[in-house]
Nucleic acid binder design. Structure first.
Lengths: 372, 372
DNA sequence: TTATTTTTGAGACACGTGCCTCATTTGTGC
DNA sequence: GCACAAATGAGGCACGTGTCTCAAAAATAA
């Protein structure tokens, strides 16, 4: 019978700690896998652990000269604080709020699904997320809600709402109170903070490029359908779309944006009119995340089968449309990635660390029937 | 002057721990943000912390009945081990090896770059990665290298190499010795383990779909160029390509695969011959990750400018080609994501946890000039 | 110089888990 | 019932960091 082994997974020959401190000629720790600790730092700087702590956590009452000594030692040893241990000591707990519109959009449902499904995984990092529905078109009520959040109960908020001066101010005050704020999917023009979401201009350009490439040597027009052109996102997409189309496809011209306002009847009316006025429509760009209404309207009109169609966001509906040929391509941002990225960024902001920025860039994904 | 505040970032009103244990009627902990500890578990199960430890870590000498009691308490409390604390206690350190071909492929360079650039970020999780170059076409030397790795010095290996019986066996023995093994980018047919890389059949199908959609109403042929058709990856891509083409584009037919063997002269000869024999070539699919040779060859041949071209993997070269019109689309897997995903998976394997599978799926990305 | 303040050090305890030892209890076979 | 083994409990130390307290040392002011 085996004598009890120590943990079987991995244990490496552990050199004793002292050799980290051997401020040998090089100043390099002998084994990079042994990260220096605050104790090593103290020894290297010739101060006590208490002083190291004072410097690391920015407490006052330390002479400038001592601070410099410690900082020099940090550089020399390449010290990086062990965040796991620190969080353990502090019993850190993060509570984040996703402030999302209450609209019934399928894309939004996907976002919420990913938030919920991520809870167990987040909890492993001491992160808890709540969803709070806001009235996206009432900046005052949004601001009022944000005003209720304090650093005592909320570490950060991811906010999906169109920009407005009130929101801007509310976010600013939130940050002053020590609550991290992060524009989420809807981008906030005048915010210096970074945000989470795809580059909408690039998305629009991609739509134009796809429609253009799918219709080579065709003389015709492209239809653009949006739920509304009020939001900055829509404007950016349209801008990218037009720019790319003008630059690369002189054979195609874009019609003015149609706004459905999420109304089926209105959609039928304006799309029908547009189609009969423009028999040369070669492609359709459905710009808003709710593709269902425009697409069902269009598919109900005779002769639209051959028209190339591109929409936004992966939802059960757009997925099915891709599969059955109702859509040729979907331009999407990965909902799971959006959520995880937001959580990582909020976490990084609240503990003032940095995120690996490349990982956090939200890709403009091109989905086809074949790469779902 | 402020009295020293406790840490300013986030501290929530901390209910005392005891109320977790109130095995109230519901069995739910009062505050989900307070995760139960082993101490709570012990109290709930009516055993000591030592016994809880015995159960949690699978030590022997515990009565079945006691094990059941503890497991019941785990379920009741929803206990999840605090991995950070556990790793701290164990001083866990992971060393992973990326076994990669030594070829000069730009895509491989990208992979290596991401490994190197990730080192600081990995170190935060006590992960250290080394790159080891292997002779991809010599299964024996690969097996010999893998045989040198032990659980003492290596926690896991990500292996990028074509499949072979020798490799298969070597991986198996590696796993028996307690070293995690993970097929990386090159997929291993008969491995039960999961792997990291994109679905090559889907990638091939996507190439066909793009070439097909880019050439509507065109009667013609498609050329397929590979470095070699030896690897499973190439075969899978070709299979997906043909399947999609046959199913959806009766107007196009695919020519037999050309193999360059990475040789410029050979590439010029075979591609030139093929093009002159088939003046109806409407599109070209460059299947291997080294697009440079075929693409420069093709661009040197008169009359190929109008041919639609699709290649694989994002590299400085393919990126430039997209920008200047030398390529219409690139089918790519995100190199950074590949590396990070491999690290997360190796970590999960070595400590027998589970990864959030959705996050780990490597997307078949469609890159255009507009969404780089 | 002395008195006072500022700066530093030494040490303790905590966080949640792993892992060990030693004693005690419980159960089993005879 | 006894002897012995198996099962369990009690407790301690460790991991690296945060956060206290109290004393000692150093710098400054008087």
């Amino acid at each position: 019978m085996e004598p009890k082994l120590s943990h079987p997974t991995q244990q490496f020959a552990a050199p004793q700690r002292s050799d980290i401190v051997t401020k040998s000629n090089t100043g390099m720790p002998s084994d990079p896998m042994l990260r220096p600790t605050t104790k090593d730092l103290a020894k290297a700087a010739g101060v006590s652990r208490a002083t190291v702590d004072r410097v690391l956590n920015g407490r006052e009452g330390v002479k400038k000269k001592t601070v410099d000594k410690v900082n020099a030692a940090i550089v020399e040893l390449g010290f990086v604080r062990n965040i796991q241990a620190a969080n353990l000591a502090k019993s850190t707990r993060y509570r984040f709020v996703f402030a999302l519109p209450r609209s019934g959009d399928q894309f939004l449902q996907e976002i919420i699904r990913h938030i919920n499904e991520g809870q167990k995984a987040f909890a492993l990092d001491q992160v808890w997320c709540d969803v709070h529905h806001i009235d996206e078109n009432d900046p005052h009520s949004i601001a009022a809600f944000l005003a209720t959040l304090t650093a005592q109960d909320t570490s950060g908020v991811a906010i999906m709402a169109p920009e407005s001066p009130q929101l801007r101010d509310a976010i600013f005050r939130l940050q002053e109170r020590g609550v991290a704020a992060l524009p989420f999917i809807s981008d906030q023009a005048a915010m210096d903070t970074d945000w989470v979401g795809m580059n909408n201009r690039s998305a629009g350009a991609t739509a134009a490029l796809l429609l253009g490439q799918f219709s080579p040597d065709v003389q015709g027009s492209l239809m653009v359908v949006a739920e509304s052109m009020q939001s900055r996102d829509s404007l950016e997409r349209r801008l990218g779309f037009d720019t790319e189309l003008n630059a690369s496809f002189p054979n195609l011209y874009a019609l003015p944006s149609l706004e459905t306002y999420g109304d089926q009847d209105r959609a039928e009316a304006i799309i029908g009119t547009m189609l009969s006025n423009h028999p040369d429509v070669a492609g359709i760009y459905i710009m808003s995340s709710e593709a269902r209404i425009p697409l069902t309207v269009i598919s109900g009109i005779a002769g639209t089968q051959r028209i190339v169609k591109v929409a936004h966001e992966r939802t059960p509906f757009t997925e099915a449309a891709l599969r059955n040929g109702g859509l040729q391509s979907v331009i999407a941002q990965d909902a799971g990635h959006l959520v995880r990225s937001a959580v990582r960024k909020l976490k990084a902001i609240t503990d003032k660390s940095v995120t690996h920025s490349a990982q956090e860039r939200i890709r403009v994904e091109v989905l086809l029937r074949t790469n779902l």
